[in-house]
């Protein structure tokens, strides 16, 4: 099987930012906690490869740690969505048409009525802002997404004869869901996972831009954009780097998702939109 070109480009971009985030755990070119007003707004080149911001902090270092924040938030949020959403969706499909299915799906619809931002607002209002809030808000929003995908794909599998055969063998619905359904929808979940990952990056950027995400002094791409906004019209370059990081990461993840979809099963094009 040929690896689709999107997959290669996507994996390369994603891998690049993932590597930057990992490296930032033990090495950054400069410290980002110290403020150096004298060295503020240094142009790219020299000691600061990408220059410094309005407080004199090294942009490259900020971006590396920002990658860590963004990726961690989005990844954990996808984890929450899969861990809670997939079992719910499988359970709903296994008990199709019963009150349990109805309650689960109506619950799903209810969460859909709360955009991530609104959940973040609610949590922040009672618990104060933090990166954890962003994780929770995006993660909660991911739950119904994965539940729906899992339920939809599982429903079409439940009509297959091999499921009937398993039931004739006396297997329980939970066992069938784990043994027969889950492995057959895993491809779909991986593809949806990359899509939610990329949406998570964007959502995290939006939340930290309005101050509902990671708090100072932790650098994050969204807040770097917010901080550069007042200087944007005199110094637009400052906003280009974080924006570029967001765009390339999201682009990479989306390309990877498309590529995976083509690689794993061309029929998935229909199931995921």
């Amino acid at each position: 099987m040929r690896t689709p070109i999107q997959l290669k480009i996507g994996a390369l971009l994603t891998g690049l930012f993932l590597a930057a985030a990992l490296v930032s755990l033990f090495y950054t070119p400069h410290s980002v906690t110290g403020v150096n007003i004298a060295g503020k707004l240094a142009p790219p080149g020299g000691a600061h490869l990408l220059g410094t911001d309005h407080l004199g902090r090294d942009l490259l270092s900020m971006l590396m740690i920002g990658a860590r924040t963004s990726i961690a938030v989005a990844l954990v949020a996808v984890g929450i969505g899969i861990a809670l959403g997939v079992p719910l969706g499988l359970a709903a499909a296994a008990h199709r048409g019963t009150w349990a299915d109805e309650v689960l799906m109506r619950g799903n619809d209810l969460i859909f009525a709360f955009p991530s931002l609104v959940i973040a607002i609610l949590i922040t209002a009672v618990a104060g802002p933090s990166a954890l809030n962003a994780i929770l808000a995006i993660g909660i929003f991911n739950i119904p997404v994965f539940a729906r995908v899992a339920r939809g794909a599982a429903l079409s599998l439940w009509t297959r004869d091999f499921i009937l055969a398993a039931r004739v063998a006396g297997k329980s619905r939970a066992r069938i869901s784990a043994e027969h359904i889950l492995p057959n929808i895993a491809n779909l979940l991986v593809v949806q996972g990359t899509i939610q990952f990329s949406l998570g990056i964007l959502a995290e950027a939006g939340l930290s831009y309005v101050g509902l995400g990671a708090q100072p002094p932790t650098p994050s791409w969204g807040r770097m954009l917010a901080e550069s906004q007042t200087l944007f019209y005199s110094n637009p370059g400052l906003a280009m780097f974080p924006a570029g990081c967001i765009i390339l990461t999201v682009l990479g993840l989306n390309l990877m998702g498309d590529g995976l979809r083509d690689l794993l099963d061309p029929r998935l094009r229909r199931a995921v939109s």
Binding site: S198, G206, Y209, L225, L251, N254
Partner: peptide
């Protein structure tokens, strides 16, 4: 469209201001 999905809308807003307002 792939690019359009990846652009954060608030940053795109800043660009628009720079281009069409300033």
């Amino acid at each position: 469209t792939q690019l359009g999905i990846a652009v954060p809308n608030f940053w795109f807003g800043m660009l628009l201001v720079l281009a069409f307002a300033i």
